[in-house]
Nucleic acid binder design. Sequence first.
DNA 1: TGTGTTTATATAAGTACTTATGTAAATATA
DNA 2: TATATTTACATAAGTACTTATATAAACACA
Lengths: 316, 316
Amino acid sequence: MDALRVYGELGLGSRLKRMSDYLMKETQIVYDYFSIDFDPYLFPIFKTISDKKGITNSEIGNALQFSQPAITQALHKLNAKGLILYKNDKLDKRRKHILLSKKGKSSIKILKPIWMCIEEILKEYTDEPSSSLIEHLNKFENKLNSSRFSQRVIEKIKLETNYGLRIISYDNKYAKDFYNLNIEWLNSFFHVEAYDEEVLSKPQEYIINKGGHIFFAILNNQIVGTVALMPIGNKGIFELTKMAVTPKERGKKIGQQIIQYCIDYAKSMGLPKLVLYSNKTLENAVYLYRKYGFMEVPIELDSPYLRSDIKMELLL
Amino acid sequence: MDALRVYGELGLGSRLKRMSDYLMKETQIVYDYFSIDFDPYLFPIFKTISDKKGITNSEIGNALQFSQPAITQALHKLNAKGLILYKNDKLDKRRKHILLSKKGKSSIKILKPIWMCIEEILKEYTDEPSSSLIEHLNKFENKLNSSRFSQRVIEKIKLETNYGLRIISYDNKYAKDFYNLNIEWLNSFFHVEAYDEEVLSKPQEYIINKGGHIFFAILNNQIVGTVALMPIGNKGIFELTKMAVTPKERGKKIGQQIIQYCIDYAKSMGLPKLVLYSNKTLENAVYLYRKYGFMEVPIELDSPYLRSDIKMELLL
DNA sequence: TGTGTTTATATAAGTACTTATGTAAATATA
DNA sequence: TATATTTACATAAGTACTTATATAAACACA
């Protein structure tokens, strides 16, 4: 028996606070689950700084209708976490402009998919008509009680984002995954050539032993994508090849993460150039390669794949 | 521009808190205005104690879904204000039952009309359909912004309750009020006798100088009611008479307060008995006199008023 | 040009909650 | 019947806000 409900409008103040505290606590659980060093109460301030670069302390206060010391204190916290930078105003020495730090910007990228999931679940819980505010709060609380908010959000994030995606190096125990991921993809677009079959079945022999690298994208303990870097000649030029993402995880930008990882890896190894072969009918793939800086170059007549009709390269 | 609104569902947690804080602060202003030593956050706990006499600490926590230390701390505050009493459980020495003190009970009486006004205004602000919780909160905030909540409540309390009613003794400057209040009442029910006219015009001469008392009920600096106590004989028996409440303030139980004041006054003076004369057609008045303990007694043939057909007395 | 007022931010202290923990009594269990 | 566990309430410390106030710079104006 919930006495606050019985008190109806009179208990409204206490009730709004109780619900706020619950939502904040549950959101903290979500951040903690994904090991994100962020506090729910910082959200409005951090988001405001992100949206209005160079905003000042008191401007944030006005935008959010919090007291000025509340903002100052939250900024201290954000600064302690390394998420923001202060920049003094040139004309007015009292004013400090607040900007996202590099870490702040990357945090925003990490947080955005989580915020989207939270927003969608809250919409699901609250986006329905009711005849009064109290009735609405009752419905909302019923839903919050029926399944823990944090658990619902965590499940949604796991299901719908690539949160927690890690990229790992080749291990023989993933050979079958490497084969399956690539065969699935080849089968649906082209004819699997006998040589493909041979290489994909024996990655250790054909890629690793020849100085190549294979990486896997792993999400919730499942191999969801792969890519290989194969040396071409002996000038440190590598081919980006054998890239594949499992069908049911497509749309989560796993491909982009794999390409970025390869580029970062190649740069860290001091490689001069990456090349790749593809087919113009694979418009999405080619678009993606261009997005990451690959430029089309003339393709050799004796290109290594029958199916290729485009060659691209990226100078690092 | 309110950024929290723009963030919609995502800002919900912070927004609920902001609204709760606002309501609490405004309610505090109302209590302060009427010089009531009470805090809004204590409401749910105080109300629960009032509704379930003898409830224990942890039972309150369960009913309200607050943590146990929150209840302990609030109980300390209520105890410091003298509003509650602790009573140890006879069987289980760990348990403490919480009861309203005498001051607590009278505080409930004082607070009830205020709570009712708050509830009605909140209902007015929130009791309408909306298509989503966010839309509801927007509408609610718009209303809260358009006129300060505390001011609306204070005005309503002043208008609809007798809050702040004081009872004061006779002063010549109120002679005209005494006349008007009584003539209004007499005119609407009976014929104003010449003797009435004479007595009401000269209260100093006919009442005060003869050892009687006149009291006025004063609300928001306006005289809203009056009553007189006239000595009958020399045995300390007084007649309760010339009681009137201004028409536009009726329904606020001002009459009851006037009667109670007379009874308390008579007791404090050590008077043995109050008597009064009325007319049976004035059912409400007679009902009220009975409620305060007056008993019907045979009326003299030569009663002082032509219009009287009932005599009542109260032994003090 | 000084001088009082306003503005931008920081600091201090208080508040109403929280979690973690302590203490003593009651209850369960072996 | 001794002992471990649970329960009821209290205390301590932390948190995210608040109000009040401090500090320094900017501004208004005589």
